[in-house]
């Protein structure tokens, strides 16, 4: 027959267990404390502060609560709408192109010997360790209508790619699409390397050719990597700034102005920190929405 512990002994045992637990966990908490504090002070705090600012008329020295006025103002802001369209178009084109290029390049590297894979990974990763400013400057020269390589190669005459409102954004998009997506290549390459070879052997025995194997085995099994890359590339695309700023300055006639550039100008040029924060909140909401859709679309329980 089981006997219940006296209440007193249970009470006296709990604090000692707590102390033991505390002694066990304390070092762990102490180890994470610095990074948690840094995160709270320098990242989480400013994010919350920015969220609060979005509902205020905030300048350098003055603040006043204005509710949703900043968001209502954005609805009527022609430049903001233009920047939204530009950014969305940039993301809509560059994200799938970058993914496809990364997937194809990683697929082409897969049959190569290990040393050649290493060589190509390093070569493809070079753009990632090169400043975007440098890359964008080179692209600006390449699009120069008089002596740029693009017009020379295409023999089109002096097409002013970056100076015409109907061409400038497409030129910027082209520059991003033609820059090898280094992270994607490396991650896809690593993911492909971890797919068991017997899956391909079995498919081969069943008569599947290389394309069928790639489409029915490789692509589905890369879904977790694809999901990660889609989300990350979408975030990077929505945050595009340096490339556009260097290549076109956001012009001509707002043709290449992006949301982040607008946030920068609104905040630091115009001192309208409330409006800039509202723009940032909208950007955050868009990225979060895109990520949610992507998670829903690409989520999988792939295990192998």
């Amino acid at each position: 027959m089981a006997r219940a512990l006296p209440i007193r002994s249970a009470r006296t045992a709990t604090p000692s267990r707590r102390r033991a637990r505390w002694r066990r966990w304390l070092p762990g908490y102490l180890f994470v404390l610095p990074s948690t504090a840094m995160f709270a002070i320098f990242l989480f705090g400013p994010v919350i502060w920015s969220l609060l600012l979005a509902f205020q008329d905030a300048s350098l020295t003055q603040r006043e609560w204005t509710g949703l006025d900043n968001f209502r103002g954005l609805l009527d802001d022609r430049v903001f709408r233009k920047a939204l369209r530009n950014t969305a178009l940039f993301a809509a084109v560059t994200v799938p192109v970058n993914l496809l290029v990364a997937l194809v390049l990683a697929g082409l590297m897969k049959p190569l010997a290990a040393r050649w894979q290493t060589f190509f990974r390093a070569a493809y990763y070079l753009p990632a360790v090169t400043s975007v400013v440098i890359l964008a400057t080179v692209w600006r020269w390449m699009f120069n209508p008089r002596f740029g390589a693009i017009n020379q190669l295409l023999d089109l005459g002096p097409v002013p790619w970056l100076a015409r409102p109907n061409l400038a954004l497409w030129a910027v998009i082209l520059s991003a699409a033609l820059t090898i997506p280094a992270a994607g290549v490396v991650m896809y390459s690593a993911a492909m390397g971890s797919i068991p070879g017997d899956l391909y052997e079995a498919a081969g025995l069943e008569g599947a050719g290389p394309v069928r194997q790639w489409w029915d085995i490789t692509v589905p099994l890369l879904k977790p990597t694809t999901l990660y890359l889609v989300v990350m590339y979408t975030i990077w695309a929505f945050e595009v700034f340096e490339r556009v700023y260097i290549m076109t300055g956001g012009g001509p006639a707002y043709a290449t102005t992006t949301i982040v550039q607008l946030i920068f100008d609104t905040g630091f040029r115009d001192w309208q920190y409330g409006v800039a924060s509202a723009q940032a909140v909208v950007l955050f909401a868009l990225v979060a929405l895109a990520a949610a859709v992507q998670f829903r679309w690409l989520r999988s329980d792939v295990q192998y």
Partner: peptide
């Protein structure tokens, strides 16, 4: 003017 006039950078 050069073809890029309109969005020509000062440095250019």
């Amino acid at each position: 003017t050069p073809p890029e006039f309109g969005n020509q950078m000062l440095a250019d």
